Structures are given as C-alpha cells and as structure tokens.
Simulated assay, not measured.
Amino acid sequence: MSRSVLDLARGGDERAFGELVGPHRRELRAHCYRMLGSLTDAEDLLQETLTAAWRGLAAFEGRSSVRTWLYRIATNRCLNAIRDGHRRVPPAEPVPPFVPPEPSSRGDVTWLQPFPDALLDGAPGPAARYELRESVELAFVAAVQRLPPRQAAILLLCDVLGYSAGEAADMLATTGTAAKGLLQRARSAVGPPRETLSADSAEERELARRFAAAFSADDVDGVVALLTDDAWLSMPPAPHEYVGRAAVAGFLRARTACGHLARFELVPTRANGAPAFGCFLGGKPAGLIVLGVSDGGIDRVAHFLVMDLPTDFGLSR
C-alpha cells in the first residue's frame, strides 16, 4: 500500500478506500463467520466493519497495519453483536414431514450456517495453530460458538490469525496477562485441531461419491457402512442430533419408511473445507449437506435445512 492511497482515502476518495480494504474483505468475512457461526450475520458485520473503517479512517494513525486495524474493528463489532444477543436467537425449529425417532441429544448452536469454500482466502499467520481449512471446519466453528465471547475472540486472533497474545490484548483493550489467561482457557475448551483426510484427496472424493450414491438412492445400509462408530447427524436449525451408527440409521429409516417423500438429488460442492452437496427435491432446493471425513470414514453429516442456497456454492437448478 502506498502512502498516497491512504492519503487519498482519508481525503474521501472511495476508489482509494476500496483499494485499501479490498485485499482484506474475504478474510474479514471468514473471521466474522468464525465469531458468529452465521454467514448471513458475517456479511452484515463485514459491511458494518467497512462502514466503521470508512468513517474512522481520519483517526487511523498508522501505528499498526491496515489489516490489524480492520481486524480490531471487525472483532469488536462482532463482540458487540454477540453482547446485544439478537445474532444468536435460535431460529424457528422446522417440523419434519414424518415422525423422527428420539434424538441422542439436542444441539445448542442451531444458528450455525455453512460457509462456501469459494469464499475462503488468505493464509494463516506463521504462529497460527490452525490451517485455513481447519479454521472453518464445522466442529471447530461450533466449538467457538460455545466459548465466552472474549475467549472466542482471543482464540481466533491468536490461533487462527497468528497474532501474539500481546497484539490481541491491544486489539481488545485488555492486558497481556488477561489475554494469556483467556487464550489458555479457550484452548483447553476447544482442544487441538481435528484430524481429517487431506482436502480433495482421492480418498475423500471416493467417500463423498459413495455417500452421494447411497443417500440419493435411500440406501440406508449403504450410508451407514460409510460411517464411523461415533458418527453423528445434525440438521441445523433443528436441534436434533443423532450420534452413532444405530441412531443415524434409525433416523434415516424413519424418513424412508414414509414412502411419500421424494428421493434427494445431490449436487456436489464444497463447504467448510469439506465435501458438500446441494440437496434438491423435484428440482427445488432442499438444503445443503456437509460431510466430515476422517481416516475411518465419514464421522459427521450436517444437513443444513436451508432452502435458499447462496450462489457462492455454485449450485443452480
């Protein structure tokens, strides 16, 4: 970034401002998504962040990089949104067209939404504990949602973006000692990165292909054969979660036993660093399935019951 671009932006040049913040838009969106668990809210907070940056540019003294300054704004805007509470109000629970079996548990992060791989951009910092793909993996994002907000912010700033605890403390207007304590508690709660197959590897593609073939054919036994023993099925925004092969099989059989429900057509895409499928019934959108794939097989099936699939998933029917 040249000094002239910053000076022009401070003078009200919108094109210069776009040049100033443009390289950071995608990674800021991903950061807001990790903080909030919702792509819809992340888009809103990205716009709020850029608006606040535009209005506050005159006060930017250049003591940090523009990137760090933007992350300071974005993180604190997200914390304000979480504190206000409306961003995490559980959405209405959908009513299935059949009687499902009793779930193994009821999830508490029902606002979680999928994130298109097409929107991912930017390498993590050299001190980051999480790779880019791991930083948007569904289990990680859900775990972040369960943390106290400031713990979540410190974890993301340090372990995903690679800032030091001191730098993160400065961004959140707290002390280095407090930041280190928050980071230690957050790491203990979330645990280390989950081991998965290499992204888009031959093994991952084959498991995804076999899952799609079995699922779209209502072949419950074929789906269950691909699952790990402790696999779970979730369906945000419904809180129902089915854990273990037997529980997942019971749910799938209850659905297929209805008889009047059409079979899904699955169209491949990618979300949250993993294989995903747009679901269609009679040519109409019927949600998005995101898989978690490990060495032992498929250990997570998240069927997001969203009818309006973002164009960033590359799906159209």
Score class of each variant (00 low, 15 high):
Asp44Leu: 15
Phe280Leu: 15
Ser4Asp: 15
Met35Arg: 10
Pro124Glu: 08
Arg317Ile: 10
Gln151Gly: 01
Ile154Pro: 00
Ala262Ile: 03
Val136Cys: 10
Ala208His: 06
Met35Ile: 05
Gln113Gly: 06
Asp218Ile: 05
Gly37Tyr: 02
Leu6Gly: 04
Gly222Val: 10
Ser316Ile: 10
Ala231Arg: 01
Tyr163Gly: 01
Val89Asp: 12
Phe115Met: 08
Gly11Val: 07
Leu291Gly: 01
Ala42Arg: 01
Ala173Gln: 13
Arg34Ile: 05
Asp108Thr: 14
Phe98Arg: 03
Phe280Ser: 10
Pro94Tyr: 03
Lys180Tyr: 00
Ala202His: 11
Phe264Ala: 15
Leu172Asp: 01
Pro310Leu: 06
Leu155Met: 12
Arg129Gly: 09
Leu46Cys: 09
Thr40Lys: 11
Val5Tyr: 04
Ser188Lys: 15
Trp232Gln: 12
Glu206Gln: 13
Arg88Ala: 10
Ala30Asp: 04
Gly62Ile: 03
Glu137Lys: 10
Gly259Met: 04
Glu241Ala: 12
Gln151Glu: 15
Gln113Cys: 07
His260Thr: 14
Ile73Ala: 06
Val99Ile: 11
Arg106Gly: 08
Arg15Gly: 13
Leu266Gly: 10
Arg146Met: 08
Asp121Trp: 14
Gly107Met: 13
Gln145Tyr: 01
Arg87Met: 13
Thr51Gln: 12
Arg210Ile: 07
Gln151Tyr: 00
Ala81Arg: 15
Gly250Ser: 09
Arg185Thr: 01
Gly282Thr: 08
Arg194Asn: 05
Leu161Trp: 11
Leu155Asn: 04
Leu8Phe: 09
